[in-house]
Design a protein around this nucleic acid. Sequence first.
DNA 1: TCGACGATGTTCT
DNA 2: GAACATCGTCGAA
Length: 265
Amino acid sequence: MLRKKPRLSESKASQSQPKLDSLGDHPLASPRSPAPEYSIYFTHQKSNSSRLGPEFFDQPAIALAQAFLGQILVRRLPDGTELRGRVVETEAYLGAEDEAAHSRGGRQTPRNKGMFMKPGTLYVYIIYGMYFCMNVSSQGEGACILLRSLEPVEGLEMMRQLRNAHRKGAARALKDRELCNGPSKLCQALAIDKSFDQRDLAEEESIWLEQGPEKPGEHTVVTATRIGINYAGEWALKPLRFYIRGNPYVSVVDRKVEQEMQASG
DNA sequence: TCGACGATGTTCT
DNA sequence: GAACATCGTCGAA
């Protein structure tokens, strides 16, 4: 029962954030009270009461990947617009032993440093030269969670605009289900780029996680293999992807696994 | 609905 | 120089 390790000195954490200028004078952009200390137990400024703090992220990768399902990812744009999406699909990457992880074999490079930082730290990287993927560091050296799909909840028109901005010409209109059903699509829809790398999801002003209204039941979570890592040998076969069964916003459905669940359950 | 493929450039060997 | 935790389009069925 490992629990409760004292982490970061929080009075200091608030000092080490000198630049908020671009957001500073917007009425929605300053949730900070004049109180000298920022406590995770008193985060109820406005509607912010359900924000998940550092303790949420401090759990092993598989547990955290599952715990993410049903939670709400919130992105506040510089103009104050808030975008919300419910997490419906995640993958766990376990660290050194995991042949599919960027941290495989204990590799630590400037790029993947975020994977090794404290739980809740974002690891955003560029894939195929033009897309971003967003990960959240978990407990465990070099372990993290990849966010694969969101169910759009609030700000859908802005999401559509942001997605269209990345597309050539004026292609056909995107359906709601196409806004955030993929790791790079959700980054486009929420305007998440490399500048978010190594930022703290538990403390940031412009992005955070909120407790969702309902947790998916245990029998509604599908456990399947991860996507796009076929090079990883036996690790490609490990059941480290989790998604909400029947949710139309999941990017890749594994019908075979779902049938097996049905049969045994 | 599905499979093949090109785009595009950073990161790592 | 090769690989890459992806996406959108195109053509076949």
